[in-house]
Amino acid sequence: MATATFRIWRGDQQGGEFAQYQTEIDEGMVVLDAVLKIQAEQASDLAVRWNCKAGKCGSCSAEVNGNPRLMCMTRLNDIPLQEPVTIEPMQSFPPLKDLVTDVSWNFQAKKKIKPFKPRAPEPDGTWRMDQRDVDRVQEFRKCIECFLCQDVCHVLRDHQLHEEFIGPRLLVYSAALEMHPLDSEDRLDDLANAKGIGYCNITKCCTKACPEHITITDNAIIPLKERAVDRFYDPVRRLFRVLAGG
């Protein structure tokens, strides 16, 4: 059996450093397997989040050799193992311990987005929807909330504008609500102002990071930006507002 070396960040809010571990690796192993093996055999208090181990729950997000990844979906045979494999926690969020970060901001920010409000149902109490309209939103609803898109977003990662900008994950969530065939709520004012959609400068880092392959920028953020622009900067509407004394 082959052996590989892993450099894993160990620490907490006060700071930390990389610790080096060697472990045996087996065919088909993913990065999370190696981390759990090290935990079981060498470092029982090594903190890591994980659940489904099948890319469906979005718990085990981390940075593997600098790349934003779900550890459970990153196969070791896709990584060069001659060099140590570096595993760090996500950098956009405060560290809690080792590979675990404080992602609570995502949950708080989500709560401030206006919830789903369906239009009145048909006389039989249900709704008819066309599969085509459903398809568009289902892409966004594939999101597993791994927060890797938030991790790589410059506005959050480099500029730490968590108070002014909700980030790609929550823009996808907003898009899913805005484009929901039944939704009747209006979130555009909010998105343009409190949620800071203007901060996104479309570098598409989030789209590249998404393990669910959601086309975040093109299908979610740009259409939302366009809707906001149409409402607030459309010259005809502006003229109308001026004439109306608005």
């Binding site: 907490d12 935990q39 029982s44 208090d45 090594l46 903190a47 890591v48 809690l96 311990k97 080792d98 675990v100």
Partner: peptide, 10 residues
Amino acid sequence: SPGNREYNPG
């Protein structure tokens, strides 16, 4: 369980 009470999976 070696270590302390903070996020200690062991």
